[in-house]
Structures are given as C-alpha cells and as structure tokens.
C-alpha cells in the first residue's frame, strides 16, 4: 500500500505515537493525504531478549521501557523523556521517524550501535542506525524494531536544556561501557543534525580505564570531557545557533555532560561529585 501510494504521488505518513507528528500536521509543518496509524499493530509492541541482544518493537512506548531491568540505560533514557503524557504516547519507532538532533532515544541508540529492523514487500531487512538515518528506510518499508547488544557494563544518559516536560534537550549525551569488549562508546546530540559518536574520546577512554576493576581516575574523566568538547566543535554541519544556544555553549555542555557521564559510569562511588 505504501509503495503504491508513493507511485501515485499521494503523501502517506506513518503514525507511531504522534507526539511530534500530530502537532506538526495541525500546524501545517507536515502535510499528509493519508495517515497509516500503527498503534494497534500488536506485533510492533513486543520487546524481547536474545542471548546477546535486546529487541524493542517500534510500537513500544517510553513508559513501557521505564522499568525495563534488562536495559538500565534504555530505562533511564526513557524515564527522562518529556512528561508522563509524552512517555505514555511516544514510541521507539516515532523517535526514529522524527530523528530530532538531540533526541533522547536517538542519542542513546547511536552510542549503543543499534540496528534498525524494517519490513517491506521485499521482505525483512536490517541496517545500522547511522545508515538508516542517513538514507531513511527503503520506499514502502516500515520500521519494525531496533536491536541493541545486551548491556556489558554501566550505561547512562544525561541531557541539558529547558523544562524537560515541555522542551527537547539542547545537548544530550549517552555513555555505554562494555567490560567484556573493553570498550566505551559515547554519543553527543544537539550539536549536529543528528547525534554523533565521539570516536577519539572513546579510544582514549578505552586506554585510560582499568579494565580489571572497571574504574578510571578523575584525570581520565577530565581528559574525556576535553576530548568530547574538542570533537563537538568539529561536528559539521552544526545546527543553527539560537540566542541562548550558541555553538560554544553546546560544545561546552557536551564536554560537561560527557565528563559527568564518564564519572557516573567509571569512578568509584567515593567520588561521585568530584568536579570534572
């Protein structure tokens, strides 16, 4: 149906949740000749765990994820999205469709190396999140789920911005530590058009972490924060600046959030408030 509609020039939009799309239709920012609402497709509301991976259906809401013990990082990210009203309505698939620059879930999934699962008349497909975001789904395809590795260590998500319930983050940061693979991944949202990985800071961190204990020093946290600030400044093209959101502010905030996230994941509990 989707493929057919595209050929005939009809503007068909997929609705999953609606917290972004419905206000955009109302304001005229988005237009649609037809809407395919996915809320009742129960198959999209499934979440599950395999031996190594977690699969979260596109119709799963943030509220569904808030208490999910299998992924504390995903649960924490979901918990700080919007308000109760938004968390009850917004979905995983909707977050991918909206692809906001500092999208909470998008930032976390970018750091998590998530894959996007789609279905189309030509069958199911699976592609890395970055490729999905760069090119969108194939014509006529629907996102069915995201897949990410089971957590292998501490994970956290932090953001900064206006009133959380009412406004998206200005800058967002996810840090995931994998003690088995001896790796740390970090994504920063709100600087470029989409969340970006901080590869240089990631590899420096991997060398700074004492993997036997899964801890690092305050000096390593400061180094990590500085590398993230520097990397954020190189992201291109950067988002347009606002009166209270200069590019310099965003780079600085990225470093501050990254340092805090690193500290929460890797510094022993004795120094949780040590400035980074």
């Amino acid at each position: 149906m989707l493929a057919g509609a595209r050929e005939s020039g009809t503007e068909v939009v997929l609705l999953s949740g609606g917290t972004d799309l419905v206000p955009a239709l109302r304001s005229g920012e988005r237009r649609a000749d037809a809407v395919v609402a996915l809320r009742r497709v129960q198959e999209l509301r499934v979440r599950g765990a395999g031996a190594d991976s977690l699969t979260v259906g596109a119709g799963v809401t943030y509220t569904d994820l808030v208490g999910w013990s299998l992924s504390p990082g995903l649960a924490r990210t979901a918990r700080v999205v919007g308000s109760v009203q938004i968390r009850n309505t917004g979905t995983v698939g909707g977050a991918l469709g909206s692809a906001r620059p500092a999208g909470d879930l998008l930032t976390f999934l970018t750091a998590a190396d998530a894959e996007v699962l789609t279905a189309s008349p030509s069958g199911p497909a699976r592609l890395p999140l970055a490729r999905f975001l760069a090119g969108g789904p194939a014509p006529g395809a629907v996102v069915t789920a995201v897949r990410l590795a089971r957590p292998g260590g501490p994970q956290t998500y932090l953001k900064i911005g206006g009133r959380q319930a009412a406004f998206p983050a200005v800058v967002s940061c996810a840090v995931l530590v994998d003690r088995l693979r001896r790796s740390l991944t970090c994504a920063i949202g709100g600087v470029g058009r989409l969340p970006a990985r901080m590869e240089e800071a990631e590899s420096a961190a991997a060398g700074d972490i004492d993997w036997a204990t899964g801890t690092a020093s305050p000096a390593a946290a400061r180094r990590f924060a500085d590398l993230v600030t520097a990397a954020a400044a190189r992201i291109a093209p950067a988002l347009p600046v606002g009166p209270r959101e200069s590019a310099e502010y965003r780079w600085h905030a990225a470093g501050v959030l990254a340092g805090r996230a690193f500290t929460r994941c890797l510094l022993p509990a004795a120094t949780p408030d040590e400035p980074t």
């Binding site: 609705l15 949740g17 609606g18 917290t19 799309l21 419905v22 206000p23 239709l25 109302r26 304001s27 809407v35 609402a37 809320r39 509220t63 919007g82 308000s83 109760v84 009203q85 938004i86 009850n88 309505t89 319930a165 009412a166 406004f167």
Partner: peptide
C-alpha cells in the same frame, strides 16, 4: 497544541495522554 502544557490531558484507554498529540481517527 504541542504536547507541552497538559491542559488537554485525557485518559485514553486508561492512560494519561495530551489529546493534542493523539490523532482523533486513531
């Protein structure tokens, strides 16, 4: 009309939602 203020809150099948973010036909 942006899902920010909560003035239009309703229960939709028992769940709190901002009715401005819900498609009526859905």
């Amino acid at each position: 009309e942006q899902g920010r203020c909560g003035a239009c809150s309703v229960l939709l099948d028992g769940r709190l939602a901002a009715s401005c973010t819900v498609l009526a036909a859905d």
